[in-house]
């Protein structure tokens, strides 16, 4: 019994830390899908792109992956703005966003993935930083820094986005744009411009999310797909666009996956997220905390 209690305790703690990380990878989709109603299924591919930029900064130039990802935020922001611009001109303004818009992002996902394969190959890549190896110990509980540091970075990322959303005009405009673009126009703001900024932010978050992903686990291009289900499962469960709901849903999923992986083996853990997503969609599509 002692052994399984240790296992359980460690699984719970690493699940909690994992959940914090999942919240960070989802937060961008909470903005693009939750608030702007743009189904960017290519989002995980940009996270992997973030992992690779952090990998280059780390392995070629010897920089810290997290610091370099923060330096690279503006580049990802501009990339996001550019993608939104193409999407807006090609689909939203033609009122043809549904099928073709989805196919567009699917194509972008695929192009990004195949390009990464062509450039970096299919080998797993790692980063090197002082916090990748060691762990803290509290009794029987291990706290690997490799999970703890990403958890703290996630909290900082989500916290700063929350502050931006609540306390700036732009942030509140982003929250308003999905609900009432007309009112926004009356206030003298251009919905298209607001959405471009918000989408830029959503892609910018991929830089940091990608860096902490490659700290937590080795990365190769096709793992983007494993994250599609996780991200959308969390986003839908969290009630689309609510940061608080996103965090709670992410932690629930992190713990569930960690328990599954500990007691049934890691090969089952991808199914947890998707199973959760299917059940959520079938039973409560407005999310655990959403209004019906």
């Amino acid at each position: 019994m002692d052994l399984s209690f240790d296992l359980l305790g460690n699984a719970l703690v690493s699940g909690l830390l994992l959940g914090g990380f999942y919240a960070a990878v989802t937060i961008g989709v909470s903005i693009s899908f939750g608030m702007l109603d743009i189904v960017n299924i290519a989002h995980p591919a940009f996270i992997i792109l973030g992992s690779y930029t952090a990998y280059i900064a780390n392995s070629v130039f010897g920089f810290d992956p997290i610091l370099s990802s923060i330096v690279l935020l503006p580049a990802f922001y501009l990339l996001g703005m550019a993608i939104y611009h193409v999407y807006d001109v090609s689909f939203e303004r033609r009122g043809d966003a549904s099928i073709r818009g989805l196919a567009f992002f699917f194509g972008v996902l695929f192009i990004t993935e195949v390009t990464l394969v062509l450039v970096f190959g299919v080998d797993y890549r790692l980063v090197d930083a002082p916090y990748v190896g060691p762990s803290l110990h509290f009794g029987v509980i291990d706290l690997p820094l490799r999970l703890l540091v990403p958890f703290l970075v996630s909290c900082a990322l989500i916290g700063s986005l929350q502050l931006f959303m609540s306390y700036t005009f732009l942030g509140r405009a982003v929250q308003a744009v999905a609900q009432d673009p007309m009112a926004l126009r009356l206030m003298g703001a251009n919905p298209s411009k607001i959405k471009r900024i918000a989408f830029g932010l959503s892609i910018a978050s991929c830089s940091v999310a990608g860096a902490i992903l490659i700290i937590i686990q080795p990365v190769e291009p096709s793992i983007a797909r494993d994250y599609i289900g996780r991200i959308f499962a969390i986003c839908v469960m969290g009630g689309l666009g609510s940061f608080g709901g996103t965090i709670i849903a992410a932690v629930i999923l992190g713990v569930m996956e960690s328990l599954t992986s500990t007691f049934y083996g890691p090969s089952w853990s991808p199914a947890v997220a998707f199973g959760f997503l299917l059940i959520t969609l079938a039973v409560r599509p407005s999310g655990l905390f959403g209004r019906t």
Binding site: F232, A271, F274, L277, L281
Partner: peptide, 15 residues
């Protein structure tokens, strides 16, 4: 939602 669910279904089936 249907589209996202089909993606999810593919991974569940593969697992």
């Amino acid at each position: 939602f249907f589209s996202i669910a089909t993606l999810a279904m593919a991974v569940v089936a593969q697992t």
